[in-house]
Design a protein around this nucleic acid. Structure first.
Lengths: 133, 133
DNA sequence: GATAACCCGACTTATTAAGTAGGAATCAGG
DNA sequence: CCTGATTCCTACTTAATAAGTCGGGTTATC
């Protein structure tokens, strides 16, 4: 079923936190406190997001992190993809069970579609698009 | 993201196999061969399905397993629920990330809805209902 | 040069997944 | 009532993944 690892959820929450504070670098410490994310673990995650080019960072006093693109141009799928990596598994459903592939495929497609629609701006702004589609 | 354990996939495939051979008991050995499922593991899974009341069994020669209800009355969700158990986790999304809860909720709901619609008869018969909803 | 921050790889620990093992119980046919 | 086919059941093993933790290094500002 649908399952997001703690790591992925943390990444999403951290990114939303950045989306909610545009303009100035946000230190990891503040994100950690606001979202209750273990500090060292968060470092780790932010590093991964930065390496993927989704966020930027600045060291030293008044340093911190900020989004590399406008919040409206970063989708939840972007972040999940970075954290979970490409899920390259094509399980075979032999014989009579073969239609199950279509079912799972449709499910994944819908999921990807929806997550690609929703941006950090939507979430941080509290105004989500229609979720029934 | 969407992920079904090997165990769950095996359970689905085994159930479809039963749906495709109504009337007579199907021995585990045949399911194992048709679906390439490790024999002992399959035993284990079928036992779980039986205990949940989804299938029946008969020991001895000409024994085997069969569906406890018509294939049209067993949904994929029924099977997944039995194997994965109730997923009782309500992760908190504090502060600005709170709307993420709605997003994940909507995703899960759509998933459950679709999986509750599709029955073993659909899959075994190869005629799936509209998957775009 | 002190302080505030990020940077980085490696390590640890707990849980879950995926199966395996060994046999006991049951049932049909001869 | 014996044999072989089959299910039933608990427990065990092994590998992978998840979820952090650790120890320090680097960079920037004042």
């Amino acid at each position: 079923m649908l399952r997001l690892s703690a790591r992925t959820q943390y990444a999403l929450r951290a990114a939303v936190e950045l989306a909610a504070a545009p303009g100035a670098p946000v230190p990891a410490e503040r994100i950690s406190a606001a979202q209750h994310i273990p500090r060292r673990f968060l470092d780790n995650i932010l590093l991964q997001l930065r390496r993927a080019g989704l966020i930027n960072s600045q060291r030293g006093p008044d340093g911190g992190y900020w989004l590399a693109r406008p919040a409206a141009e970063i989708s939840l799928a972007d972040i999940i993809l970075v954290i979970e990596g490409v899920t390259q598994e094509n399980d075979r459903f032999p014989g009579v069970s073969e239609p199950l592939e279509k079912v799972l495929g449709a499910l994944r497609e819908h999921q990807n579609h929806l997550l690609a629609e929703i941006t950090l701006a939507h979430v941080a702004g509290g105004s989500l698009p229609d979720l029934s589609r």
